[in-house]
């Protein structure tokens, strides 16, 4: 269980990025953090990752407070951030340096197959397209077998087709070990496609606006997904102080 208790973050320059965030995320849940820019989504993710520390409140994973990067918490950044001097396979195995070579090779081969890049293990990152590089980054996070996986708008720079492709890869990997996933996104369709629960955040200062539960099973064009998309859109508009007719238009 990942718990976020009354977390606030104020930067050194006095900017109040987050205030009073309270969330409990059960194991295996996929939670989407949705919101406009500047609402503190990424800040919250960095706090959970242990890259920054909260000004107030605590973040706990199974009872233990997170104050620094935690072995059970993986993070996929907005950009692939592959190390250009390592091959694709070496990049994926970057966090496994403590394991024997044979074990490392087997686990790397397994996740590379899962993201459809088995044939690319010996290549350099420069040889891959943006979508392929982000698949490598996802594989690198999964291979360490995290309890919690954080994703910071990992698909935002990709075209729609590639993005859907990556959604499938992500869900396939998630299905193997079912880690808790916290996904930051500004894309409502993405939140509905992936998440069990979507938390809408609002800015100035960043805080939780409301929550939408997206029941399973569903496919992209089911009634469930459509209803969830509509209510999420309406909440997002409201969180940004926009009054639109979209919510009022009958389906």
């Amino acid at each position: 269980m990942l718990t976020i208790q009354d977390v606030s973050k104020t930067y050194a320059d006095g900017t109040e990025a987050l205030t009073g965030i309270r969330l409990a995320i059960p194991p295996g849940e996929i939670l989407a953090l949705v919101g406009g820019s500047g609402c503190g989504k990424t800040t919250l993710l960095r706090l959970v990752a242990g890259l920054d520390t909260a000004t107030a409140g605590t973040i706990r994973l199974d009872g233990a407070a997170i104050t620094a990067p935690h072995p059970g918490v993986g993070l996929v950044f907005q950009e692939p951030r592959l190390l250009p001097w390592l091959t694709i396979a070496e990049n994926v195995g970057f966090g496994l340096a403590h394991l024997p070579r044979a074990v490392r090779r087997e686990r790397v081969a397994h996740v590379l197959a899962r993201v459809g890049l088995s044939a690319h293990g010996t290549r350099w990152p420069r040889d891959l397209s943006g979508g392929q590089q982000q698949r490598v980054a996802i594989a690198r996070a999964f291979v360490a077998d995290p309890v919690v996986l954080l994703l910071d708008e990992p698909f935002s720079a990709l075209d729609a087709v590639t993005r859907e492709d990556l959604h499938r890869h992500l869900l396939a990997l998630w299905a193997e070990t079912r880690p808790t996933i916290v996904l930051v996104t500004h894309d409502v369709a993405e939140a509905v496609a992936l998440a069990d629960r979507a938390v809408v955040m609002r800015p100035h200062p960043g805080r939780i606006h409301d929550t939408v539960v997206v029941p399973r099973p569903r496919s992209g064009d089911s009634d469930v997904a459509f209803a969830a998309t509509r209510s999420l859109r309406a909440l997002l508009d409201a969180s940004l102080g926009r009054i639109t007719e979209r919510a009022a238009v009958p389906a």
Partner: peptide, 11 residues
Amino acid sequence: RKLVEVGRIFR
């Protein structure tokens, strides 16, 4: 700095 953060994430 972004690559250094990758190192931090992997502790």
